[in-house]
Design a protein around this nucleic acid. Sequence first.
DNA 1: AAATATAACGCAACTTAGTTGTAGTAACAA
DNA 2: TTGTTACTACAACTAAGTTGCGTTATATTT
Lengths: 126, 126
Amino acid sequence: MGVIRKTKSVEALLHEFNTSDEAISAKQLIEQLDSKFNKTTIYRVLDKLEEDGVLHSFLGKEGLKWYAKCNGCSASKHKDVHPHFQCLKCGRVDCLPFSMAIPEIPNRKVEVSQVLIQGLCEKCCV
Amino acid sequence: MGVIRKTKSVEALLHEFNTSDEAISAKQLIEQLDSKFNKTTIYRVLDKLEEDGVLHSFLGKEGLKWYAKCNGCSASKHKDVHPHFQCLKCGRVDCLPFSMAIPEIPNRKVEVSQVLIQGLCEKCCV
DNA sequence: AAATATAACGCAACTTAGTTGTAGTAACAA
DNA sequence: TTGTTACTACAACTAAGTTGCGTTATATTT
Ligand SMILES: [Mn+2]
Ligand SMILES: [Mn+2]
Ligand SMILES: [Zn+2]
Ligand SMILES: [Zn+2]
C-alpha cells in the first residue's frame, strides 16, 4: 500500500467491499454514500485503492465502471485476472473464480483481455 | 424494422464500413462526417443498421461504442458473435474471425458474452 | 406527374458518468 | 503540539450519447 491514510471515506469504502462478495459500481457507491461523502472523493479513493492493488475495476454492461476486491494483488502487480458476470435481470455483477484461456492471435501481441458474460444470476435463474 | 430508406446518411455510413474492414467508433464517424450530418442522425442511423442486422456494436476500451459489419445476420437474428481486439497503441479495433467457447457456470444461465482483447496490432507490433 | 404519408433529418436542449482546479481540513509523524 | 501534505468538499466542467420537435426528403399512391 502506497501512502494512503485511514480516512473515513477509505474505511467506509473498504467496509462496503468487505461486507459483500459482489462487485459494486462507482455509481452505486456514490448513491449509497451520498449523504456522507462527495462523489469526487469516492472516485478518487477508488482510484487509489485500485492503484494499491486492493481493488480492481472493469466495465459492465452499459460501460459503467465496476469495482471488486483483489485477491493477492499489490501496487506493483495486478495478477488477479478473471471474467465477470452480469445479470441481465437484476444487474448484479460478480467475479468468476476461474481464468479463461486467451488464444494467441497471429501478428499481434496480446496483453490484456476482459470478458463480460451476461445472463441470469443464481437468484434470478429460478 | 425493415423499413429503411436509402438516404444520403445511410449511404455515407455504409460506404465507411464498406471501404474498411476495421470497426469504427461512433465518435470517429461523427468527427469524420461532421460537416455532412448531424451527430443525432449518425447515432440514429447506426441504431437502425444494427437493428436490421447490417452492423453489430460493442464497447471498446474506454466504454466507447464501436460498430462493425455483420456477416450473415438479419433483423430477426444476430448470429455473428466473436471477440474483438483493440490496439493499446493506436487504438484501432477489429473483429476476430473465430469464436471463443464460453464455459457453463453452475446455477447461472449464460446468454451473451463479450470479449475484448487488448494488445498491439499488426501495424504496431513491429 | 402531382399528391400523400411518414421515415428521416437538423437543431437545440438535455442527461449523466466521470474529471479537474482549488482552497480548506484532517491524518500522521516529528 | 506543531508542521507537512494527503485528502476532502464544492463547484464548474467534459463529453458521449439521448430526446423532443418542427421541417424535409423518400417512397408510395393516385
Ligand atoms: Mn473481478
Ligand atoms: Mn465484430
Ligand atoms: Zn440477477
Ligand atoms: Zn495499433
